[in-house]
Simulated scan of single mutants.
Amino acid sequence: MYSPYFESHFNIITSLTRLLTTSANYVLEGVGFETIQKDYHSIKIGYSKGITVNPSCLGWAVMSFWVAFVSANKGSLSYKLKWVLFGLTSVILLNIIRIALIAVANHANWRTITSLDHHQTFNVASYVCIAILIGGYVNVQKKYERIHRAGEVSEIIGIR
């Protein structure tokens, strides 16, 4: 069943693609490049090759992994929501930087960057970022649990 209303108002893929390319466009213009963005999923500098962002470039697997990790661990709903938003924002920012860098590499003919498998490189960088986030999440959670346990012990023995 197709709904034009849902297509235009709840299309998450188009919205995320537009967010990534428009943000990369602002970054590139902010550092002095003249960009062309003919549609929501492509961006280029001048008349260079540019970059086209398709749904597999959005980082769904990495973002899903992060949300699943946070959801499966301890913590209050507000604590988990903060970490989910922080992690998703980190992955999205990394993706914006990637898109801008690929556009610059295509414009400047940087063979070392243009010859890379961008999807795989982004996945590796994203999972390194996620590993750092996991370390932060676990450390903060352990600190909270130590403080919480110390509070319970002091109440049991009558120290306030």
Rank of each mutant, 00 (worst) to 15 (best):
Y2V: 04
Y5G: 03
E7D: 14
S8Q: 12
T14W: 07
T14M: 12
S15G: 01
T17C: 07
L19M: 06
L20S: 05
T21G: 00
A24R: 07
A24S: 13
Y26L: 11
Y26H: 10
V27P: 03
E29R: 12
V31R: 08
V31E: 10
G32F: 02
E34G: 08
T35H: 02
T35M: 02
T35F: 06
Q37E: 12
Q37K: 14
Q37T: 01
K38S: 09
D39R: 14
D39G: 15
S42T: 11
K44H: 11
I45F: 08
I45Y: 08
I45L: 07
G46R: 07
S48Y: 03
S48F: 00
G50E: 07
T52Y: 08
T52D: 14
S56M: 09
G59A: 10
W60R: 09
A61V: 12
S64P: 07
S64C: 13
F65I: 00
W66F: 05
W66P: 06
W66Y: 09
V70I: 15
V70E: 06
S71T: 15
S71D: 11
S71G: 14
A72W: 02
A72M: 04
N73F: 02
K74A: 14
K74Q: 12
G75T: 02
S76H: 04
S76T: 15
S76K: 11
S76G: 10
S78C: 01
S78N: 00
Y79R: 00
K80R: 11
K82L: 01
W83C: 06
V84T: 10
L85W: 00
L85S: 09
F86S: 04
G87I: 05
L88Y: 02
T89I: 01
T89S: 12
T89C: 06
V91T: 14
N95Q: 11
I96C: 11
I96S: 02
I97V: 07
R98E: 13
I99R: 00
A100C: 10
V104P: 00
A105Q: 01
A108E: 14
N109Q: 14
N109K: 05
T112P: 00
T114K: 11
T114F: 00
T114D: 06
S115E: 11
S115M: 03
D117P: 08
H118V: 01
H118D: 03
N123S: 14
V124M: 07
V124D: 12
A125I: 07
S126F: 02
S126R: 07
Y127Q: 10
I130C: 08
I132T: 11
L133I: 01
G135E: 12
G135Q: 14
G136L: 09
G136P: 01
G136M: 13
Y137Q: 04
Y137H: 13
N139T: 10
V140P: 10
Q141K: 12
K142T: 12
K142G: 12
K142Y: 15
K142E: 03
K143S: 13
E145S: 06
E145Q: 13
R146P: 03
R149Y: 14
R149S: 04
A150V: 03
A150R: 13
E155W: 05
E155A: 03
I157L: 15
G158R: 10
G158I: 11
I159A: 15
I159N: 15
R160V: 05
